[in-house]
């Protein structure tokens, strides 16, 4: 019996927990990728060690297909794992996670194929691979080099599993909606309607004026929080995420002209960089608590 969708998530959580990762929870703000969860974006900055794993819903408004395409979703799930500093056995750890899911990597054709990663809006870039399993891309593997426009050291490595892809591989399904979420319940039962409505909302109904106004308000608020004498980094970052999501919806709605697009991107990048700088200072002020006595990072055994 192949693992169900929820068992895959549970197995990955157990596995990475055994590797000393904190199993943290999805962050309660819409975002385009698991990397933007503060457990990755902020923790990848500065000298402190960090290990975490979590599921993250990713919102890609322009990828919506009204539930009619078997592979494309405007809302899907990533399983994300970050380890800083990147360990020398990063690849072996990843392969171990596939074994934990019952995939015999010796029997399959597993390959690491060049695929560098960039998230220009948040000033992030890294080098790595997409991981092929018998020709199917199931994960993205990245060594961060830059986060929030800042060169990072030590380097964080990040694994992003496309949970639906991985489940399709494990369950041998040709459509995401046919995946078994749990016995008797399909992915489609859970998400077909959310896909239909999400696509309609993003492409047809989202109120452009409201979103544009919210972008301005969130940008203003993030900026204000960052220039306080003692900046409120986390609250500011929430508003940066809100800006980024509003921008993505506006784009799906076809409401951003070419000239405006770059302006929006620059504004978000500027905020993301200021937030990153503020976070680095903030951890310095705290005296880098996670460095304290910790040859072993802040994991739970």
């Amino acid at each position: 019996m192949a693992l169900s969708f929820q068992e895959i998530v549970l197995e990955l959580q157990r596995y990475w927990s055994r590797q000393g990762c904190l199993v943290v929870q999805p962050y309660d703000a819409p975002k385009g990728a698991g990397t933007l969860n503060p457990h990755t974006f902020l923790r990848a900055l500065g000298p402190e060690p960090w290990r975490a794993a979590y599921v993250e819903p990713s919102r890609r408004p322009t990828d919506g297909r009204y539930g009619e395409n078997p592979f494309r979703l405007q809302h899907y799930y990533q399983f994300q794992c970050v380890v800083k500093p990147a360990p020398a056995d990063a690849q072996a750890l990843y392969e171990g996670s596939l074994r934990a899911l019952g995939i015999d990597v010796v029997k399959h054709d597993l390959r690491y194929v060049e695929d560098d990663w960039e998230q220009a809006t948040f000033g992030c870039a890294g080098l790595g691979w997409e991981v092929w399993l018998d020709g199917m891309e199931v994960s993205q593997f990245t060594y961060f080099q830059q986060v929030g426009g800042l060169e990072v050291d030590p380097i964080t490595f990040e694994i992003t599993y496309g949970l639906e892809r991985l489940a399709m591989f494990i369950q041998g399904k040709a459509s995401v909606f046919e995946l078994e979420w749990a016995p008797g319940v399909t992915y489609g039962d859970v998400h077909l309607e959310t896909e239909r409505q999400g696509s309609r909302y993003h492409f047809e109904e989202a109120c452009v004026d409201t979103l544009a106004r919210r972008f301005e308000e969130d940008q203003g608020e993030a900026f204000r929080l960052l220039i306080l004498e003692h900046p409120l980094v986390y609250a500011a970052y929430d508003h940066v995420l809100a800006c980024s999501h509003a921008f993505n919806v506006l784009q799906a709605r076809g409401a951003i002209s070419v000239a405006q697009r770059q302006v929006y991107v620059n504004r978000i990048r500027n905020l993301a960089q200021r937030t990153a700088e503020a976070f680095v200072r903030h951890r310095e002020d705290l005296g880098h608590p996670l460095l304290r006595g910790a040859a072993e990072p802040a994991g739970v055994a």
């Binding site: 592979f71 054709d109 018998d134 020709g135 199917m136 041998g172 040709a174």
Partner: peptide, 13 residues
């Protein structure tokens, strides 16, 4: 054989 099946499935998708 699982490798061929996997590659066929990816291309079909």
């Amino acid at each position: 054989p699982v490798i061929r099946q996997g590659n066929e499935r990816v291309l079909a998708a």
